[in-house]
Simulated assay, not measured.
Amino acid sequence: MDNLSYNALIVEEIKKNEFAQQVKKAFINDLPDNEVLIRVCYSSLNYKDALSATGNRGVTKQYPHTPGIDAAGIVEKSCIDTIKKGEKVIVTSYDLGMNTPGGFGQYIRVPGAWVVKLPDGLSLKQSMIWGTAGLTAGMSVFKLIQTIRPEHGDILVTGATGGVGSLTSGILSLLGYSVTAVSGKTDTSLLDKLGVKTVIARKEFLKNTAQTILKPRWAGVIDTVGGEILAAAIKSTKTGGIVTCCGNVASPDLPINVFPFILRGVSLLGINSQTCPMEFRLKIWEKLGSDWKFDYLEKIYEEISLDKVTDKIKLILKGGLTGRTLLNLD
């Protein structure tokens, strides 16, 4: 293929520790020399993308850079026999959008080991409504339901109006679980539509949580934010309960003691969607395209073009986004 130009969101360090984002022309020949070239049709906005786009060196080490940890599109060229030109594929996580040019550009070139063929039951657009947030939600639900059944009691979902939280709530409700949500937003209409039974305001949830252990309330917890909220959730989990942890937007620190673990046998399970094994990844994607595809999925997102993403990056960093933000790169 000739040195085709395409549109991409380029983040540049204009002076020390000051970064600017702009949609510019990029060139295919400047992409990494990997095995599969993909024309990106859709991407989605995640918190990690916002960090990369604003110069967080813990996410992206070198600039200029194109963020976007999610991409769905069509194979343009492949050096691997099992991945054919014209196939519809998904790439999420690994190093995409971190130190490898990501889905906020119309083309990516990635290792074949990162590529997932589009599952039956999903369109490219639907796959990016899920995206990394959906993969993370699916992994969290999968871990929880191995032990916890609907009759065991309520499931708490924190950060419930965000991407992972809202998708988790939709899956759990579909599977017959009674979901209680914690949210810092005043508008909880999205959660009502996702089947959430009860919504607790974040400030209310954090009242009187300084005790070493709290009244047991939750059969299980899916936490997306970390920090004091995760600590309070663990302290109020019932005997034998399961708590999953996948985010740190509130804080990476966990102010907790050992009592919930040694007195109630609570289990804390970490969720890492970035480098999860391909076998498990494929299993979750198959579920997202079939058994876990809830009815409200296609009303949970806002679709934008690439030139609108900068405003949404500012909003997600302020905690102002609800549901999913889908980028249409066509």
Rank of each mutant, 00 (worst) to 15 (best):
T244F: 07
S44D: 09
Q21F: 00
A210L: 05
Y6L: 13
D192Y: 06
A8W: 09
T244P: 05
L282T: 09
L167N: 00
T275R: 06
A231D: 03
L206E: 07
M1W: 13
K24W: 14
G86S: 08
K84L: 06
S52C: 12
V258G: 14
P67Y: 03
G134F: 04
N17G: 04
E87S: 09
V179P: 01
Y296F: 14
G195M: 01
F280N: 08
L306K: 11
E303N: 10
L269A: 05
L206S: 07
A113D: 12
R264V: 15
S127R: 03
L254S: 13
D192F: 02
T322N: 06
I304V: 03
V196Y: 03
S140W: 05
F294Q: 10
F261L: 08
V89M: 02
G131A: 11
V110W: 00
L51K: 10
A231H: 05
N34D: 08
I108T: 01
V258A: 14
I10N: 09
V23W: 02
L191K: 02
P260T: 06
Q106S: 11
I10G: 02
I74P: 04
E151L: 05
S189Q: 07
R217W: 03
I300D: 01
R109D: 08
G195W: 00
Y177I: 08
F104R: 11
S273N: 15
V59N: 03
P255N: 04
G68T: 08
E279R: 12
R109K: 14
D81T: 13
H65Q: 11
T161I: 01
I284Q: 01
T60S: 15
I300C: 06
S93I: 02
G73E: 13
E76I: 12
G163M: 09
S140A: 15
N34E: 11
P101E: 10
I256M: 01
K185F: 01
N56P: 08
S178N: 02
A201M: 06
N17E: 10
A181Y: 00
D253W: 13
A250P: 00
T100F: 07
G265R: 05
Y6N: 12
P64D: 05
G270R: 01
T325M: 11
G159L: 09
V249F: 04
A137W: 06
S123I: 14
I284V: 15
K193A: 04
A250C: 02
P255I: 10
S173R: 08
D81W: 11
G55A: 14
V36P: 13
V221Q: 04
K203F: 04
S44V: 08
L118G: 11
F27V: 01
L194Q: 07
T82M: 05
P277E: 11
E87V: 06
I313N: 05
Y94H: 06
L135T: 04
I242W: 06
Q274G: 12
T188R: 07
L190N: 00
V164K: 01
E12P: 00
E87A: 11
L175Q: 05
R217F: 02
G323A: 00
Q211M: 11
L326Y: 01
G86M: 07
N328L: 03
E303V: 10
A20V: 12
Q62D: 10
H65T: 02
I262S: 13
T212D: 15
L315D: 12
W285N: 12
A71D: 03
R217N: 06
P260C: 11
D307I: 13
I10T: 14
K143E: 14
D30E: 05
K308A: 14
